[in-house]
């Protein structure tokens, strides 16, 4: 029995891992395809029907390419950088509840790898660790562009982590728990946190754009100024890891946003559905709803990328420190006032 539980957990971990990799893989395809659509083009359409096999072709290309390690780079750290980047990107998905417990036969299986009681903080920790991959890689390359990119990434991540944390605090005041599972369960039906915390959500979203180094905050790797940013010296699959980590990060932060503010796997009328289709199918619908939310966030990420131009560095810092942090603090105070007088 014990062994079976461990086996199920293991399968769940593998499945989530695979899903996040596949989603990241197809995000690269979606990025190119959506970019094309936003610019009245066609996008990749050669590999397979509609270019569906393009990510596989890209992956094969990445693996086949020549591996170059610069002579002046510091050997081990040069390898540690991308490994750390992809590792931190992958372990973030462990605490996200993907769906309600699902009943198969007489067993009830949790669709969450682990429900630790400090789930949000765990995600924060993983995110803050992610910057090391970039920093170590940038420094180990022994290239000034890489170093500049790495330093930009580090300062950007630190700055936006502050306002991200502050925006979360207002949410935590309402939910009263740090466990992602409980937070999701509180948003049953349509009681999504976005209705109570619109400002907090906007701040959180802007910060997650900055944390994932996505446009308009993609200064660490802006080609026009820094050649390629922190991965200038990287080639082959190490470069692939960096690019891949970015897409996995995007997937995870979309999932976090969906969980924290948009109700996760909850949707209006879920009780009615659950009563009609039984305890096996209903959670699966919930999972589908969750993924629909995640994908719409990924779509939004890409939509923003092809709309808003990149910030200048001082504007970035200005936005982070002088706009978002005061806003987040104001949000906390406001939430406190509302909670005191209307409860």
């Amino acid at each position: 029995m014990e062994l079976l539980d461990i086996g199920i957990k293991f399968i769940l971990i593998v499945v989530i891992f695979l899903i996040s990799l596949v989603v990241a893989m197809y995000s690269t395809y979606a990025e190119r395809k959506l970019a094309a659509f936003f610019q009245d083009r066609v996008g990749p359409n050669r590999a397979g029907p509609f270019g569906m096999l393009q990510p596989l072709a890209d992956g094969a290309k990445m693996f086949m390419k020549e591996e170059i390690i610069p002579t002046r780079a510091s050997g081990l750290l040069f390898i540690v950088g991308p490994s750390l980047a992809i590792m931190t990107a992958c372990i973030g998905s462990a605490v996200i509840p993907w769906g309600q417990p699902i009943q198969i036969g007489s067993r009830i299986i949790d669709l969450q790898v682990t429900d630790i009681n400090v789930g949000i903080l765990y995600i924060f920790g993983v995110v803050s660790l992610g910057v090391y991959g970039v920093m170590i890689g940038g420094w180990a390359s022994n290239n000034k562009y890489s170093l500049l990119g790495a330093i930009r990434a580090a300062s950007q991540n630190i700055s936006y982590e502050v306002s991200m944390g502050l925006s979360i605090i207002a949410l935590l005041m309402i939910t009263g728990t740090l466990s992602l599972k409980e937070i999701t369960e509180q948003q049953h039906g349509w009681h999504w946190n976005i209705l109570k915390q619109p400002l907090g959500f906007i701040i959180f979203m802007v910060c997650s754009f900055a944390e994932t180094n996505r446009s308009p905050f993609d200064l660490p790797e802006c080609e026009t100024e820094l050649v390629g940013g922190y991965h200038t010296e990287y080639s082959s699959m190490k470069l692939g890891f960096y690019l891949f980590a970015e897409y996995i990060n995007m997937f995870i932060s979309s999932a976090v946003m969906a969980t924290l503010y948009w109700g996760g796997y909850n949707y209006p009328g879920m009780d009615w559905v659950a009563a009609h289709v039984g305890p096996t199918i209903a959670p699966l619908i919930g999972v589908a709803v969750m993924f629909a939310k995640v994908f719409s966030f990924i779509f939004f990420f890409m939509w923003v990328r092809w709309t808003i131009p990149r910030f200048r560095y001082d504007q970035l810092m200005d936005l982070g420190w002088r706009t978002l942090i005061p806003l987040a603090i104001a949000n906390i105070v406001l939430t406190g006032i509302v909670m005191t007088f209307f409860k």
Binding site: F37, F38, V42, T307
Partner: peptide, 21 residues
């Protein structure tokens, strides 16, 4: 202004592409 820009790109999203294959 951001909303306006997003609307413009969204409009292009649904436009017919001009590419000749």
């Amino acid at each position: 202004e951001i909303a306006k820009g997003m609307a413009i790109t969204m409009k292009h999203f649904f436009k017919k592409d001009v590419t000749i294959r």
